[in-house]
Design a protein around this nucleic acid. Structure first.
Length: 549
RNA sequence: UGGGUUAUGGUGUAACGGUAGCACUACAGAUUUUGAUUCUGUCUGUCUUGGUUCGAAUCCAGGUAACCCAACCA
């Protein structure tokens, strides 16, 4: 059965361009500004650009849009490259808009020579005022009619550092009464005496986005320049500049950016969370950054699946973060090694199991058949989960309770005989007896129990730190809520506890993925040290029982 | 009050004038040594008003709503 997958609108454009012979193959680019870490929204864009080129036999460039030296930094270019590689994509060329500064300067000169650009001495406030408003046309700058010679001379002096920041700008000469505000003589070069992370102090004028992005696309022969919806109004300017410059006609296409519930997606907001130490850093496992998800235990596969499922369209969206979690579980369920870990321990004593005795049982590492198996020590005293015992359960309870039976996963069936409590009424010990002929894999007891619980042998258990994460925000759309988004931080987004784990967890590696049975998926955190393992909750298991309560 | 963009179940996304489909979620059931997984089933949708047409989610006109645009940010 061939299931025909429908194309998204960009694939349709590409297919039609290919079919019409407009292009023989396509070239895309991913153009981050190195002023922050990449987030899951970028993953959507990365996946779109790289997958598209791969699917249609083209390639993708990685181009850093580094035209604003005051906000950009080498730290960010390194992290961006790491993240893209981790996602599994390979760029054809690693490029920088700053590679084109000379070329861009020549482009500007060409515009000036043809009367399409001029140097303006107005202040930014004056320029803003003269620009008008969306409902009122702007007025021409008094400097708009300078001669070509004067403009060339002034622009060259700008480049040569003859002026201070803000003293002059170069503007495209288009139409001050255009309905599109971006066409009202946009600034295309400004003076910034700033150190650039690549060109150093070579330049003191820097092109604006609109005079760098499209031109870079063109220089690289990008066929499909894909960006998000807020750039729709820029497209007219993008096309205008390419036409006046008479360079390769790249085309811009826009799609709706990713928004996700219970998180924020803007670099500015993420930076605030980092700077104000609300999170531990850009790669804090609660962050929506790619590095955050990676540290949290997400896999590239899970993110690919997510990007495939959310689709690509042109309408605003707010994706349920539950879908991302679903995609993670979907992958982890197949690969995560099963382990037994008790998060909130209470002691269970098997009174008819000899003191001092222990035995080695085996358990499956994975769910399906043909799973590898591992050894687990069993003994008289065990840790079990507090929530797996209830003194006065209702009829739907099938875990442990006085007089009730459960199976200890991969071990024996036990029956609860008695409980010990402290003077506050808290259960301190649960006394049970086990059914010797009910051993897992060789059960001759004929008993049928509904519940199975996990456990760890007290004398063999190791202590591990577990970090349990919850969503960072308490409301679905903090970015668009009333007031400051930080008012909606979830105070319980991180809980740390010491858990009792089966000994095999002592030698874990950073890329290993685990399922702590009946609890969730976990991975070793980068804070872990050989003698003090730390595990992150990647995502909990679906829990229909807890939900019903 | 100008210009641009978009409206399909709770959330996403298809259907390109001819049966509104898929996924997630929710709910119900089966299986289960993870209340997980797996399997089966159920609920819920074309913004609105007109028009064209044998036939409209799709085409046309008018409304309505949401988002974007007045950085020397990208």
């Amino acid at each position: 059965m061939t299931e025909e997958k429908s194309l998204n609108f960009i694939e349709e454009i590409v297919e039609s361009d290919l079919a019409s012979g407009k292009y023989k193959n396509i070239v895309t680019r991913f153009p981050p500004e190195p002023n922050g870490y990449l987030h899951i929204g970028h993953a959507k864009s990365i996946t779109l650009n790289f997958s598209l080129a791969k699917k249609y036999g083209g390639y993708t460039n990685l181009r850093f849009d580094d035209t604003n030296p005051v906000t950009e930094d080498i730290e960010y270019v390194d992290s961006i490259k790491d993240d893209i590689r981790w996602l599994g994509f390979e760029w054809k060329q690693e490029l920088y808009a700053s590679d084109y500064f000379d070329q861009l300067f020549q482009f500007a000169l060409k515009l000036i020579k043809e009367g399409y650009a001029y140097v303006d001495d107005s202040t930014s406030e004056e320029i803003a005022t003269m620009k008008g408003t969306p409902t009122q046309p702007g007025v021409n700058s008094p400097f708009r009619s300078r001669s070509v010679e004067e403009n060339i001379s002034l622009f060259t002096q700008m480049k040569d550092g003859k002026f201070k920041d803000g003293e002059k700008v170069l503007r495209a000469k288009i139409d001050m009464s255009h309905t599109n505000m971006l066409m009202r003589d946009p600034v295309i070069y400004r003076i910034k005496h700033a150190h650039h992370h690549r060109t150093g102090n070579q330049w003191c004028i820097y092109p604006m986005y609109d005079f760098a992005h499209g031109q870079s696309d063109s220089i690289e022969n990008i066929t499909h320049s894909i960006c998000t919806l807020e750039f729709v109004p820029h497209r007219e300017l993008y096309d205008w500049l390419i036409q006046k410059l008479e360079i390769f006609p790249s085309h811009q296409y826009e799609f709706a950016r990713l928004n996700m519930t219970y998180t924020v997606m803007s670099k500015r907001k993420l930076l605030q969370l980092v700077n104000e130490k609300i999170v531990a850093g850009w790669d804090d496992p609660r962050m929506s950054t790619i590095s955050g998800f990676r540290r949290r235990g997400y896999t590239p596969e899970s993110i690919h699946l997510f990007c495939e499922k959310i689709g690509v369209a042109r309408r605003e969206n707010l994706i349920d973060i539950g879908l991302l979690e679903f995609c993670l579980r979907e992958h982890l369920n197949k690969i995560a090694l099963r382990k037994m870990v008790v998060l909130d321990p209470v002691k269970l004593i098997i009174t008819n199991y000899p003191e001092g005795q222990s035995e080695t049982l085996t358990s499956e590492d994975l769910h399906g058949e043909n799973s590898p198996i591992r050894n687990i020590p069993f003994s008289r005293e065990l840790w079990i989960e507090q929530e797996d015992f209830l003194e006065e359960p209702d009829k739907k309870w099938f875990r442990l309770a006085p007089g009730k039976m459960v199976r200890l996963k991969s071990a024996y069936i036990i029956q609860c005989d008695k409980v010990e409590k402290d003077n506050t009424g808290k259960v301190t010990e649960i006394h049970c007896s086990y059914i010797p002929n009910s051993k897992s894999g060789n059960d001759q007891s004929g008993l049928h129990v509904k519940g199975t619980i996990h456990w760890v042998s007290v004398q063999h258990a190791i202590d591990i730190e577990v970090r349990l994460y919850d969503r960072l925000f308490t409301i679905e759309d903090p970015a668009n809520a009333e007031g400051d988004f930080k008012d909606y931080i979830n105070p319980n987004s991180l809980k740390v506890k010491t858990a009792k784990a089966e000994p095999s967890l002592a030698n874990s590696h950073i890329d290993d993925r685990y399922q702590f049975i009946r609890k969730g998926y976990f991975c070793l955190d980068s804070d872990a040290k050989p003698q003090s393992p730390v595990f992150n909750l990647s995502v909990s298991l679906k829990d229909t029982f807890a939900k019903k309560k």
